[in-house]
């Protein structure tokens, strides 16, 4: 636990774990699960900056993910763009969109912000299902493989290294932001918005920056996951998916980067483990969420940490 608190301790620990994993669980199915966990974890780490640190809710982040995924699908599939250019353009486009909508949206508070981001996500999701000529409509569309300067990752293992590296990079960037004056200002906004503003913090600008960063994380994860799975559907941009992403952050532990990773892992694994239960899957899923929120309201990782500390003290 102490290691997790130091600056690079957690990152090194995770890197070691990620290095060992393919040897411990090397079959394609498990690696595929690991890859999907990593994709979700990248998004959750970004979203945690917004929810956990900036104290802002977004119910539309699947929209950014969807935009990233479809940008790669359309630009590479229909226009033969190189994958890296499509990915970077998607990221830049989403950054711009997030920036433009952020100012008016982030001026809103609480429920209004939730509604505004929800609306944004819905618009994206609607456009993706309705513009059939471009997007393939509700059926979705196929995405060509990722070709990076002549190299194409083949199979789950090659992709695993890409996602593992990106997850570490995402965590590093997030931690840099958190440990900075900007991160402190964000946490201050959470603690007392008026105090932060009087101290000179341009709270709107801070929130905008974090909103943009978290949207870009989602867009990049979306782009890559589109190449990885080879298919995109409008469901990826749906409200339900947005809620799932928020749940990862909340269940893992708000304002805890590794909590977000843990939350992403759980939310990806649980449906796999519960799939045998067929009709009752959603029910059990909901129950687990409810119970964990009642027992560990701060989220899993902070909650467990607190529990360990009190046990050690006792």
């Amino acid at each position: 636990m102490k290691l997790l608190d130091s600056r690079y301790g957690g990152l090194l620990l995770l890197a070691a774990g990620l290095l060992l994993l393919p040897w411990l669980a090397g079959n394609a199915y498990l690696l595929d699960v690991a890859n999907r966990i990593a994709i979700n974890a990248i998004i959750a780490v970004g979203l945690n900056l917004l929810i956990g640190y900036a104290g802002q809710i977004s119910l539309g982040h699947a929209g950014f993910l969807g935009l990233g995924a479809y940008a790669s699908a359309i630009l590479c599939g229909s226009y033969d763009w190189p994958a890296w250019l499509a990915l970077l353009s998607a990221a830049a486009g989403v950054a711009l969109l997030a920036f433009l909508v952020a100012r008016p949206i982030l001026r809103l508070k609480g429920h209004y912000l939730a509604m505004a981001t929800l609306g944004l996500g819905m618009i994206v999701s609607l456009v993706l299902s309705n513009e059939s000529a471009l997007t393939g409509g509700p059926d979705g569309m196929a995405v060509p493989g990722l070709v990076l300067f002549g190299w194409e990752p083949q199979g789950e293992r090659a992709w695993y290294w890409i996602f593992a590296t990106l997850l570490l990079l995402a965590i590093w960037l997030a931690q840099n932001l958190i440990d900075s004056p900007l991160g402190r200002a964000l946490r201050a906004v959470h603690g007392s918005e008026v105090a932060a503003r009087v101290a000179g913090v341009d709270t709107t600008a801070c929130k905008v920056q974090v909103f943009v960063i978290s949207a870009v994380f989602a867009a990049i994860a979306g782009s890559l996951s589109a190449h990885y799975t080879g298919f995109v559907t409008p469901g990826q941009a749906s409200f339900l998916h947005s809620v799932e992403l928020v749940t990862m952050v909340v269940i893992g532990g708000m304002a805890s980067t590794y909590g977000a990773v843990l939350g992403a892992a759980l939310m990806t694994l649980l449906p796999q483990l519960l799939s045998g239960l067929e009709d009752y899957e959603m029910l059990v899923f909901g129950l687990i969420l409810m119970v964990s929120m009642i027992v560990l309201p701060q989220g899993l990782l902070p909650g467990l940490r607190g529990w360990l500390q009190t046990r050690r003290a006792a």
Binding site: R184, A185, R187, A188, H190, G191, A195, V201
Partner: peptide, 14 residues
């Protein structure tokens, strides 16, 4: 209007 989620020193640093 103290940020109770920060340390004392961090409050001043804000």
């Amino acid at each position: 209007q103290i940020c109770m989620n920060l340390t004392a020193l961090e409050n001043v640093m804000v």
